[in-house]
Design a protein around this nucleic acid. Structure first.
Lengths: 144, 144
DNA sequence: TTAATAAAAGATAAAAAGGTATTTTATTAT
DNA sequence: ATAATAAAATACCTTTTTATCTTTTATTAA
């Protein structure tokens, strides 16, 4: 479905978005522990998220990563596009190079519905949408 | 979504199922051309499908692969399970090792619906379901 | 019974994804 | 100024997936 990098990216954004409510930067170590994910790998992903403008970073003591007000409005679709491209939305599930109404694969029609649901979920979810539930530990970003 | 091997496997099963209506074996060369896929890679996949009982094979002149009456009833889900395991149905879309009602990720609830649709499509589609449309060139297994 | 055919098997290689380690640069607090 | 902190950058390594190539085995038809 999503690449490992993309999954970590989404989870990291949810986590940092929630932590950012208090206005403080969160360090890589806290983030990788909060996601139960390899620290150096996460570091690389956070750099990409920063470069693409989804995160704000600060070096030095008290530094780390932050999701500012504007960045809280990032959708999951934007993150997925940045890491995995548009294949989740556009590509044929049986791998045809150009599967369309004119050249449909056997499951083309039925897969449309699945793609639509996925697309809807990704474009309608903001990284801020679960800040409260995550804070209240009703939702999780790792197995506890 | 599915691995490349799995996509080729499903397309190969659709193709051989349709060709098998005439009762003749179809050779690897015809199959790889019919799918626009690398011949040796397809060969390996067909061997796996044969070993797992989804296909019948015959060596020598007039040999090749065939989907018999019983094998025509194979579902896409069986093929997917054989190549990619059950992760498409069971695993968390954000990569949590154990995402469940007790430890749900932020998109757990919404993803359920997508998973259900996918599961329904895979378990309700037989490799024989599109024999007619494929024969009439209303559906395709490669870009024409 | 032999030559042609075609799948089966095995070895290898190329590419992509996932992950680790080290060094460099910038910031802050003392 | 300087020592500590933490992200940025770079290089490298491992595993998995995808793909190719070669040899072997089985079958059939002449």
């Amino acid at each position: 479905m999503f690449s490992q990098s993309c999954k970590y990216a989404i989870r990291a954004m949810f986590l940092i978005a929630q932590k950012s409510v208090e206005g403080k930067y969160t360090g890589i170590k806290d983030i990788s522990e909060g996601l139960d994910a390899p620290q150096h790998f996460i570091a690389k992903i956070l750099q990409e998220l920063t470069k693409k403008g989804f995160l704000t970073s600060a070096k030095g003591p008290n530094g780390g990563f932050l999701v500012n007000q504007e960045q809280q409005k990032t959708t999951l679709l934007e993150i997925v596009y940045a890491f995995d491209g548009d294949k989740i939305i556009t590509s044929c599930c049986l791998g045809l190079k150009d599967c369309s109404e004119k050249n449909p694969c056997p499951v083309h029609e039925e897969y449309k519905g699945i793609r639509k649901k996925m697309s809807h979920m990704l474009s309608n979810t903001l990284v801020s949408d679960y800040n409260d539930e995550l804070g209240l530990r009703k939702l999780f970003l790792k197995v506890v």
